[in-house]
């Protein structure tokens, strides 16, 4: 769970940096080039297979763990004050994860599949497949943008617990370094989803 999670986190970092190229004032030329590189490079494509594999493992593991954990207590408490002792999002990783999965399906259907398996994309002035316009078009729809932004909030909370939890599960704890990991985790969980969420806002404002 933690290993696959950390791999997915590293993917987010790459994905996020490439997407950040959209904010350059070049009508998406550099972004398109990077996107095209990612879509065509043989190494990246190989890693991509692992990405999907790990994603599936991550999901399967979470289902298995959730089921095991639900079996561990079949009668719940009448009085409950769990809020006093743990963060709500740490207790809701399954639900947050499921929401992210829903988002992923939409996300893949709208961006990944068209770019990879159809020839729906046009070409930009450099002759590179024009992913930028595809994204721009999608985000100019306020409803779609809203779903995207909300999903990023969900992602942020999932990461807020997941990032540091992954290190804990791997047994990495040190009085000196754990606070650093926790800080990085919090920063990551805010910055990365914020960058993603900035895209729909960016395009909405630009419109």
């Amino acid at each position: 769970m933690s290993l696959t999670g950390l791999f997915l986190i590293s993917f987010l970092l790459v994905h996020c940096s490439i997407n950040a190229l959209m904010f350059l004032n070049d009508d998406g030329l550099l972004f398109n080039e990077a996107a095209h590189f990612m879509a065509s490079n043989i190494l990246i494509r190989t890693v991509e297979i692992f990405l999907f594999l790990f994603l599936i493992i991550h999901i399967l593991q979470s289902v298995a763990i959730t089921r095991q954990n639900m079996k561990a207590r079949t009668i719940s408490y009448a009085g409950s004050s769990a809020t006093a002792t743990s963060k709500w999002y740490s207790r809701s990783m399954g639900i947050l994860g499921a929401l992210i999965l829903v988002f992923l399906v939409i996300h893949l259907k709208d961006f990944f599949i068209p770019s990879r398996f159809t020839d729906r994309l046009g070409f930009d002035s450099n002759g590179t497949p024009d992913m930028y316009s595809e994204v721009k078009m999608a985000f100019e729809n306020p409803a779609y943008a809203m779903i995207y932004i909300l999903s990023m909030i969900v992602l942020a909370y999932h990461l807020l617990h997941g990032f540091q939890s992954a290190f804990r599960s791997l047994g990495i704890y040190h009085k000196k370094y754990t606070p650093v990991i926790e800080f990085l985790g919090t920063a990551f969980s805010i910055v990365v989803p914020a960058v993603f969420a900035a895209m729909p806002i960016f395009f909405l404002l630009k419109k």
């Binding site: 095991q68 954990n69 079996k71 561990a72 769990a82 002792t85 743990s86 740490s90 599960s169």
Partner: peptide, 12 residues
């Protein structure tokens, strides 16, 4: 027993 998901309720 269930698995640990690091919620921290035990310590609290």
């Amino acid at each position: 027993f269930g698995g640990c998901t690091n919620t921290g309720a035990c310590e609290a």
